[in-house]
Design a protein around this nucleic acid. Structure first.
Length: 886
DNA sequence: ACCATCACG
DNA sequence: ACGTACGTGATGGTA
C-alpha cells in the first residue's frame, strides 16, 4: 500500500514559529520554526512511515481567490522577519530530508493539497495531510486523513470522516458550509455577523448546507434571521472562498514523490550550521560515512567563563599580565550616550566577565589602572567606540595595540559592516552573535541577564584574540602595517579625544536664529498657499507635485520612480513659469536650516557642558575618509549666506579663546598632479596661480587676463569632473551644456594634460588586473565590478577606480596631519585643542597666547604631512567663531 | 523601512 | 547602445 504524507508548508511553519521560543544560532539566525519543523518531520517519518512525501507551499502573493474577493487575507499581519528569514532554511531542510516540494504560481498550498489528495484517491494511495488549518478537514475521506497540529506542532490530532462526525457531527464536505456561515478572521472571510461556531453548527445540523439555510431563512427568528437574510451573499461567497480548489493543473507523478529517507550528509551539514547538536547525536549524523567531521569549536567549549564578583577580583588581577584580549559590552548607536554593561578579559582558557558596576567600584582600581596604562598593550574590537563610552564613565582607555574592527576595515573597506560577528565568520575565527541578537533592537531592546552577557563576552573575547593574529598577518601581507599602526590606530585615539572634548555651541544664538527663520518660513508658507490657491503640505513632494504639475500645469522636466521630481534642479528650470517656484525654493532652503541645523543641532547640545560631541566613524567610507554622526558636523552650511550664519554659533569653550580653521587648498587636484605626474598640472600648482584659472588658460589657450568668469567656471567643473572619474554626460549635466560640447571640453583637457589621461587609463587597467586600487599610503579598495559585463556596473567601477586613489590619498594626508598635530600639541605642551575635521579642514580652539604659534604650526605640519611632487598649500583663518574663521 | 531631498567636501 | 558624475548623514513624508 502506498502512503503519501503531504505537509502544508506555510501553515506548519507559522505554527512552529509561534509555538517555539525565539531560538537562534550563534550567528544570529533565528531557528525556532526550523527546529519545530525538523522535530515534526522526524516524527512523521517515524510514525507514518510514508512511501511518498510532499511539501506544498503557497506561491506568489495573488491567487485566484483575490480576484474573487479583493479583501481575501486582507488585514493579515505581515510575516515577522524572524520567520521570513527562516523560510529559505526550511526549504533546505525539506530538501535535505529527501522530501519533494511543490508550489505553483497563482495557487495556494491548500489547492495543491486538495488536488494531490484527489489524485491519491483515484490512484488508491493512502494520504495524510499535515496542517494547522481546519478548513482542510473538508478533504477527509476513506483514504485521506487530516492531521491537525495542536499546541504548535508538538501534538497531532488525526481526523478521518468518523472523527469529524464525532467532533462536529458534520460530513467533511460541510466544513465549507461551516466556514461560510461563521467566517474566518485569519483569512478575512466575512461569514455572517453574529454567527459563530455554535450557531453555525446548529443551523447546519438542521438544514445541511448554506444554500438550504438561506432557503429556510423564514423559519428563523429575530436578529439571526435578519443577519442571515442581509448577508446571504456574504455567506455564499464565504463558502466559495473556503472551498478548496481540487483541479489544479498538475499530474500525479508518484515516482517523483517517492520518499527514500533523508540525505544524511546534507542533513548533518545543515544541522551543524543551525547548531542542532542534540539532533546530530540523536540521528547519529556526527561521523557517519560521507559526513564531514563535526565542526566543534574545542577551544570555545573548553573556555571557562567566570562571572567576576568583588571577592574573586583578585583572581583576575593576578592574571592581568596574561590577558590576550578584552571585549566591552557597549550598546547604543551613539557611544557618547550609550551604555557599557561590562568587560570580558580573556586570560589563557578563562574569560572573566566584569560587570560595569564592579569595574567602577573601589575594589577594581587595579583593572582601571590596567586599562588606563598606555604602556600595557591591549587588543580589542572597536577601541574607538569603547574609549569614548568608557570616557564618559570616568574610565580612560590607553595603550590599544590592536583593534580588530579597524583591521577588518583596512583589509576591505567596502564590506557591509565590520562587526565582530561578521569578521569572525569571514576569517573563520569562531561564530559570534551580533549585538542585535543578544540585546534585540528598537522596542525589543533589552539587556540580558549577566550570565548571558558573560557567555557572549567570552565568545567575543576569544574571537578578538583569534582575529588579531590572523588580521595582523593579513595586514602585513598587504603592506598595510604602517598604515595601520602609524596612521589609523593612533588616529582612533585622537578622534576619541576630539569627540569627548566637543565643540561649544551658543544655544541661545541658535534659538534666536531659529525664531527669525520661523517668521520667514511662515511668510513664505502664506505666499505659497496664496499662489497655489489652496493650502497643502509643501514638504510633501507628492502634494507639491500635484500642485505644480496637475493644478498649475507646469512642464514636467524629470520624474522619479515614485512620481514627479521636484528637486532644486527641476525647480530652477521652472522658475520662469510661475512665481510660486522661487518661493518654494526659498521655503526649502529655510526649512532645511530650521529642521536639520537649528532643531537638529539643539537636540545634540549637552545641557551640562553646552557642547556638541560628534562621533567620527573611522570604518564607514570606502575611500578612507571619516564620516561624522550624532550630529554630522561635516555638512554644516557654508555655500549660501543664510546657512553659513549657522557657523556663528560654533564658539570657543573658554573665554577669550579663538576658533582657528586650516584647510588644504585644492588638495585633490594636487594629489592628482602628484600621482599622474602630469607636467602641465604640476606646473599649474608651482606657479601659484589659481588652478581653475590656469586650467582655463591652458585648455582655452588664452592668457590670464583673457579668462572670464564663465571660462573659469567651466574649467572648474572640468577639474571636478576629472576628480570624480569624468564622463561627458556627467559634465554636460553639471554645466547644462550638450554632451557633445562636454566631450569636446574633456578632449581638450586631456590634450592639455596628457599625463592625466594616461593616469586614468592606467588606473582602470590596474584595477582590472589586480582587482583593487590603492592610495599613496597603501589603503586599498577592491573593485570586483570592474570586470562586470553590465555596462552600468562596470562604468561605475571605472569611475571609482579613478576617484578612490585621489579622494583616498587626500584622506591619508589629512589623517596623517591630524596625528602629527596632536603629537605636537602634546609634546610642546600647548593647550590648544583640535576640535573638528571636515575632509580637508581642521578646526581648533586656541588660547590667545598660542594664536601666533598655532598660525605657524598647523599649516606647517599639514603642508609637510606627506611630501608630494607639488607643494601642499594650507589656508589658515581665525575668529571669535567658526563663521569668522573664514 | 524606503524614498526624495539637500547639506557638506 | 548602454546612462552617470565621487564620498557621506539627517530629515520629513509615505507605504
Amino acid at each position: 500500500m502506498r502512503k503519501l504524507v503531504v505537509i502544508d508548508g506555510n501553515s506548519v511553519a507559522y505554527r512552529a514559529f509561534f509555538a517555539l521560543p525565539a531560538l537562534s544560532n550563534s550567528s544570529g539566525l533565528h531557528t525556532g520554526a526550523v527546529y519545530g519543523m525538523t522535530t515534526m518531520l522526524l516524527r512523521l517519518i517515524e510514525e507514518e512511515k510514508p512511501t511518498h512525501f510532499l511539501a506544498a507551499f503557497d506561491a506568489g502573493k495573488v491567487t485566484f481567490r483575490h480576484s474573487q474577493y479583493g479583501e481575501y487575507k486582507g488585514g493579515r499581519q505581515k510575516t515577522p522577519p524572524e520567520l521570513s528569514e527562516q523560510f529559505p532554511v526550511i526549504r533546505n531542510l525539506i530538501e535535505a530530508m529527501g522530501i519533494r516540494q511543490f508550489e505553483l504560481e497563482g495557487y495556494e498550498a491548500d489547492d495543491i493539497i486538495g488536488t494531490i489528495t484527489k489524485l491519491a484517491e483515484q490512484d488508491d494511495v493512502q494520504a495524510v495531510v499535515v496542517t494547522g488549518d481546519k478548513d482542510m478537514l473538508q478533504l477527509a475521506s476513506e483514504r485521506v486523513t487530516i492531521a491537525l497540529t495542536r499546541k504548535g506542532v508538538s501534538e497531532i490530532e488525526r481526523f478521518d470522516p468518523a472523527h469529524i462526525r464525532e467532533v462536529y457531527n458534520l460530513a467533511p464536505d460541510q466544513i465549507r458550509d461551516l466556514k461560510g456561515l461563521m467566517g474566518d478572521a485569519s483569512d478575512n472571510i466575512p461569514g455572517v455577523p453574529g454567527v459563530g461556531e455554535k450557531t453555525a453548527l446548529k443551523l447546519l445540523h438542521e438544514y445541511g448546507t448554506v444554500e438550504q439555510v438561506l432557503a429556510h431563512v423564514d423559519e428563523l427568528k429575530g436578529k439571526l434571521r435578519e443577519n442571515i437574510a442581509n448577508h446571504a451573499d456574504d455567506a455564499r461567497m464565504s463558502k466559495e472562498l473556503a472551498t478548496i480548489f481540487r483541479e489544479v493543473p498538475m499530474e500525479a507523478d508518484w515516482d517523483a514523490l517517492r520518499f527514500a529517507g533523508p540525505d544524511k550528509p546534507k542533513l548533518a551539514e545543515l544541522f551543524r550550521k543551525l547548531e542542532f547538536r542534540s539532533l546530530i547525536d540523536k540521528l547519529d549524523l556526527g561521523g557517519g560515512a560521507g559526513a564531514e567531521p563535526a565542526e566543534s569549536d574545542e577551544q570555545e567549549e573548553a573556555l571557562e567563563v567566570v562571572r567576576v564578583t568583588a571577592d574573586r577580583l583578585g583572581d583576575l588581577v593576578k592574571r592581568l599580565g596574561e590577558v590576550k584580549a578584552f571585549a566591552a559590552e557597549v550598546t547604543g548607536d551613539n557611544p557618547h550616550t550609550g551604555d557599557v554593561h561590562g568587560l570580558t578579559f580573556l586570560a589563557g582558557q578563562t574569560a572573566y566577565y566584569v560587570p560595569f558596576g564592579l569595574l567602577a567600584s573601589d575594589e577594581a582600581s587595579a583593572l582601571r589602572e590596567w586599562l588606563a596604562d598606555p604602556e600595557i598593550p591591549k587588543i580589542t574590537h572597536d577601541a574607538h567606540r569603547t574609549e569614548v563610552a568608557l570616557h564618559w564613565r570616568g574610565l580612560p582607555l590607553r595603550g590599544v595595540a590592536f583593534c580588530t574592527m579597524l583591521a577588518g576595515y583596512l583589509l576591505d573597506p567596502t564590506e557591509a559592516g565590520h562587526t565582530l560577528g561578521l569578521l569572525a565568520r569571514k576569517y573563520e575565527c569562531g561564530s559570534v552573535p551580533e549585538n542585535e541578537d543578544v540585546y534585540g533592537k528598537g522596542a525589543k531592546f533589552k539587556v540580558p541577564d549577566e550570565q548571558t552577557l558573560a557567555a557572549f563576552g567570552a565568545r567575543r573575547a576569544l574571537a578578538i584574540s583569534r582575529l588579531e593574529s590572523k588580521l595582523s598577518e593579513l595586514l602585513k601581507q598587504n603592506g598595510m602595517e604602517s598604515l595601520y599602526h602609524e596612521l589609523e590606530l593612533p588616529l582612533s585615539g585622537r578622534l576619541a579625544a576630539m569627540e569627548t572634548t566637543g565643540v561649544r555651541v551658543d544655544a541661545g544664538a541658535l534659538e534666536a536664529y531659529g525664531e527669525e527663520l520661523k517668521q520667514s518660513i511662515a511668510r513664505l508658507e502664506k505666499d505659497i498657499y496664496e499662489l497655489a490657491g489652496t493650502e497643502f503640505n509643501i514638504g510633501s513632494t507628492k502634494q507639491l507635485g500635484e500642485i505644480l504639475f496637475d493644478k498649475l500645469k507646469l512642464p514636467v522636466v524629470k520624474k522619479t520612480k515614485t512620481g514627479y521630481s521636484t528637486d532644486a534642479e527641476v525647480l530652477e528650470k521652472l522658475e520662469p513659469y510661475h512665481d510660486i517656484v522661487k518661493h518654494i525654493l526659498h521655503y526649502r532652503q529655510l526649512t532645511k536650516l530650521q529642521s536639520t541645523y537649528i532643531e537638529g543641532l539643539l537636540k545634540e547640545v549637552r545641557p551640562e557642558t553646552g557642547k556638541i560631541h560628534t562621533y567620527y566613524q573611522q570604518t564607514i567610507a570606502a575611500t578612507g575618509r571619516l564620516s561624522s554622526q550624532f550630529p554630522n558636523l561635516q555638512n554644516i552650511p557654508i555655500r549660501l549666506e543664510e546657512g553659513r550664519k549657522i557657523r556663528r554659533v560654533f564658539v570657543p569653550s573658554e573665554p577669550g579663546w579663538v576658533i582657528l580653521a586650516a584647510d588644504y587648498s585644492q588638495i585633490e587636484l594636487r594629489v592628482l598632479a602628484h600621482i599622474s605626474g602630469d607636467e602641465g598640472l604640476k606646473e599649474a600648482f608651482r606657479t601659484g596661480l589659481d588652478v581653475h584659472t590656469k586650467t582655463a588658460m591652458d585648455v582655452f589657450g588664452v592668457s590670464e587676463d583673457q579668462v572670464d568668469a564663465n571660462m573659469r567656471r567651466q574649467a572648474k567643473a572640468v577639474n571636478f569632473g576629472i576628480v570624480y572619474g569624468i564622463s561627458g554626460f556627467g559634465l554636460s549635466r553639471n554645466l547644462d551644456i550638450s554632451p557633445k560640447e562636454a566631450e569636446a571640453f574633456i578632449k581638450q583637457y586631456y590634450e592639455t594634460f596628457p599625463g592625466v589621461r594616461a593616469y586614468m587609463d592606467n588606473i582602470v587597467a590596474t584595477a582590472r588586473e589586480q582587482g583593487y586600487v590603492t592610495t599613496l599610503l597603501n589603503r586599498r579598495r577592491y573593485l570586483p565590478e570592474i570586470k562586470a559585463s553590465n555596462f552600468n556596473l562596470r562604468s561605475f567601477a571605472e569611475r571609482t577606480a579613478m576617484n578612490t586613489p585621489i579622494q583616498g590619498t587626500a584622506a591619508d594626508i589629512i589623517k596623517l596631519a591630524m596625528v602629527k598635530i596632536a603629537d605636537r600639541l602634546e609634546s610642546e605642551g600647548l593647550s590648544s585643542r583640535m576640535l573638528l575635521t571636515v575632509h580637508d579642514e581642521l578646526v581648533f580652539e586656541v588660547p590667545p597666547d598660542e594664536l601666533e604659534t598655532m598660525k605657524r604650526l598647523v599649516p606647517e605640519v599639514m603642508e609637510s604631512a606627506l611630501e608630494l611632487d607639488v607643494p601642499l598649500k594650507v589656508d589658515v583663518s581665525w575668529g571669535d567663531n567658526w563663521y569668522e574663521a573664514k
